[in-house]
Design a protein around this nucleic acid. Structure first.
Length: 487
RNA sequence: GGCGCAUUCGUCUAGUGGUCUAGGACGCCGGCCUCUCACGCCGGUAACACGGGUUCGACUCCCGUAUGCGCUACCA
């Protein structure tokens, strides 16, 4: 069997979106699991809608997901002469013909057919197909714009075997003479895709299910050239929560958005792999190697899948917890620097301080972009106290005395270690005959500005005795100033 | 409208005629742990779209209905 070659062929009319990314992942996985090649092709024949910045964004997205490709990137816009050559071939063989009908004329005919509740099919009249060579020459002499259509057989059917959906058959009466070159000289998608897939020696075309209905047209084109047809595998579409095709209306659809909102590429890749495909086992957290090992076309589902961001978030959480502290530090560093918590080149001391913070935060992070707000109080005094927590925790009678005691007890400590602090706090709670939580929560509010944080004793050792004391004092001042304690 | 495709818990899915009183995961609910939150652990909730066949037997096969999606462009 010949070498497996797959490709991902996005059109740069937008950023790399998760649906495209999923298709790319499947192609990549399939190629890698067969020791084959994975190629990248930019389908930029629609010059109006394509942009260089989009190409760059797509490439960045691919890199971020570690989807490396083999060989040079193919740009369709640079292959116009190749398409023209193949067009001429079809024209010469009488398998395609020039069509001088204007878009306006066609639209009008389509509308009037629709009014009569009928389908418009160009092939029923084939106006331009019946033009004499003299007429064609005349039109061309006037430089009349013309498109090129493929001549589709009027009877019979075209079938192909899809690896996911099985045998697909379409009667030729359902098809029209499709345009394969626009009047502006650019090939249409259907034509370019077939020519390129053949020339790039693609063996397996893995793409979205929205192309399932288009594939018979492509098969017809392969046949017209007498080329062998590749294996097709169409993958189900990705839907939004409302079961409609995933689009910008649903929020984040671009891979880059997931990067900035703190998702790890490994998590997104893992999640996307499992959308419309399942390995034969129950495990869901799979490494790249495992994915490569397990991936197969037969595991692909026929049913479109809803993109569930909650599950992605959970998966991201799993990946964050697997990180070593050093890795987590590297990922958090730019975000902490941007927040102004760390200088451009942190000292060793700063680095180890942050690592200890991250150790506490690690199981609590769903997304990497939460690190700055969750760690803010380690870098600066709380600028304000959470209002609800204040009214819940600092209005209770005795809180001021509690904090006063805490202050003096903590101030007299020599060793500000986790165990020692815990001992002091618990002893105080016992003495006051209250649960430890009753002492800890008001304290937590004083130190962090809120009622949620990692274990308070860990937080305190990290902050250091001096900071802890000054924050307690500041909290007491706040309580007094605002007359929170009932008189 | 025509053609194509699909239809298992809210969501992702396992399941290829009997092992299914339908399994796992996310979510949700309850509990444990506990200084809050998170992690972790334990338990619970919840599905074969509907109707006909075929068969000794159907989630699994066939037909129809419904619903959804896709294609029906000189977009890709």
């Amino acid at each position: 069997m010949s070498q497996v070659r797959t490709r991902f062929a996005p059109s740069p009319t937008g950023y790399l979106h998760v649906g495209g990314a999923r298709t790319a992942i499947f192609n990549w996985l399939f190629a890698r699991s067969h020791g084959g090649q994975f190629l990248l092709r930019i389908e930029d024949t629609d010059t109006e809608r394509s942009g260089e910045d989009m190409v760059a964004a797509i490439i960045a997205g691919m890199r971020w997901l570690s989807l490396d490709w083999d060989e040079e990137i193919v740009h369709q816009s640079a292959r116009l002469d190749i398409y023209q050559k193949h067009l001429d071939e079809l024209l010469a063989a009488g398998k395609a013909y020039k069509c001088f009908c204007s878009k306006e004329t066609l639209d009008r005919k389509r509308r009037s057919a629709a009014d009569k509740k009928k389908d418009f099919r160009y092939r029923d009249e084939r106006t331009c197909y019946h033009l004499s060579s003299a007429e064609i020459a005349g039109l061309e002499a006037q430089n009349a714009p013309c498109a090129i259509r493929l001549k589709v057989p009027e009877s019979g059917e075209t079938a192909f075997e899809d690896e996911v959906y099985g045998r697909i058959v379409v009667r030729h009466t359902q098809l029209d003479d499709l345009i394969i070159r626009r009047s502006d000289g650019f090939p249409t998608y259907h034509f370019a895709v077939v020519v390129d897939d053949h020339l790039m020696r693609i063996t397996h075309v893995i793409r979205g299910e929205d192309h399932l209905s288009n594939t018979p047209k492509h098969v017809l084109l392969y046949n017209a050239f007498a080329w062998s047809v590749p294996t097709f595998a169409h993958v189900p579409l990705i839907l939004g929560p409302d079961k409609r095709r995933l689009s910008k209306r649903h929020g984040a659809t671009a891979v880059g958005q997931y990067e900035t909102s703190g998702y790890m590429p490994e998590a997104l890749r893992n999640f996307l792999s499992l959308l419309g495909w399942a390995p034969g086992e129950d495990r869901e957290i799979l490494t790249l190697d495992e994915l490569v090992r397990e991936f197969s076309l037969t595991g692909i589902s026929k049913k479109s899948a809803v993109f569930d961001e909650r599950k992605l978030e959970w998966m991201n959480c799993q990946y964050i917890m697997q990180l070593s502290l050093g890795q987590l530090y590297d990922l958090a560093l730019p975000r902490l620097q941007e927040a102004g918590f760390l200088p451009d080149s942190p000292s060793d001391q700063e680095r180890s301080y942050v690592m200890r913070i991250l150790e506490l935060l690690q199981p609590r992070l769903k997304r990497l972009n939460e690190v700055d707000e969750r760690s803010a109080y380690f870098f600066s005094e709380p600028t304000q106290y959470d209002e609800k927590s204040v009214s819940k925790l600092w209005t209770k009678p005795g809180v001021l005395e509690q904090l006063t005691r805490l202050y003096s007890d903590l101030a007299s400590m020599d060793e500000f270690t986790i165990d020692a602090i815990e001992g002091v706090v618990r002893r105080l709670a016992e003495e006051l005959e209250v649960g430890a939580g009753k002492v800890i929560q008001p304290l937590r509010l004083a130190l962090t500005g809120g009622s949620v944080s990692p274990g308070i004793f860990e937080v305190m050792t990290l902050m250091g005795q001096e900071t802890v004391l000054s924050r307690i004092r500041r909290a007491m001042e706040y309580i007094e100033k605002n007359h929170l304690q009932a008189v």
